[in-house]
Design a binder for these strands. Structure first.
Lengths: 112, 112
DNA sequence: CCTATATTTCTATAATTATCGAATCATGAA
DNA sequence: TTCATGATTCGATAATTATAGAAATATAGG
């Protein structure tokens, strides 16, 4: 059963999409999604994506501020993990309200 | 049955997300999704979103180049409509390959 | 052809974003 | 405390993006 989740404001959704709108960050997120709930440390991400540590910090912070990635300290490392629920919500946002304003079509259908 | 669709490259997906990463464009897209398959003309979009015509052309072009919106001429107007399939694919992209690299968890599950 | 309407192109400008090295901070170990 | 490691902050720079007015283009109608 699908629970009802408040729709994010346009502002928040746009920030989340903007966070994904960079090849570097999308690569980071994809690595985290593939890594699953245990996540990866910043350093591991840097090794996989080939960018400087300070750049990684920059990108991960943007993903975290957008609510798509969570960070927890583990010793001297920071473990990052993708927030699967947030990603699902964001995906659902894309077609939310589909056809609600359509003049003659059936409402809430997903048009093709 | 869900048909298998080739995953977009990181580059293409990032461009699509970047296209959505603007409040103005997200408002445009949302209006088009709500309008359904018949779509809306540039001028109608301008009226709803309160931006100048040249700015609308700019944003709609970015959405179209990202493959999220289609444009067809109708007399002296340009009708724009959201591409629901593209939006679905983009939503699916977010959790694609989920947990594939996880060390001990079940594969392809959506972690929470 | 002339006019009106709808959209696009051109141009300029303001604002934001991405990148990385160097220095700094935080943690754990000897 | 000293050292090593992992991450962040700072500062500078290059590149991209958003915005809109003015001029140009496209279409329809008289």
């Amino acid at each position: 059963m699908k629970q009802s989740i408040p729709p994010p404001s346009t502002e928040i959704a746009a920030a989340a999409f903007a966070a994904l709108g960079s090849e570097a960050r999308l690569a980071v997120l994809h690595a985290l999604v593939r890594a699953g709930p245990e996540g990866l440390a910043i350093g591991d991400l840097g090794a996989r994506c080939g960018v400087a540590g300070s750049t990684l910090t920059f990108h991960v912070k943007i993903l975290a501020q957008a609510g798509l990635v969570r960070r927890v300290r583990d010793g001297r490392r920071i473990l990052c993990a993708a927030d699967a629920d947030a990603l699902r919500r964001l995906g659902d946002y894309l077609l939310a309200g589909c056809c609600a304003d359509a003049p003659s079509a059936e409402k809430d259908a997903v048009h093709g």
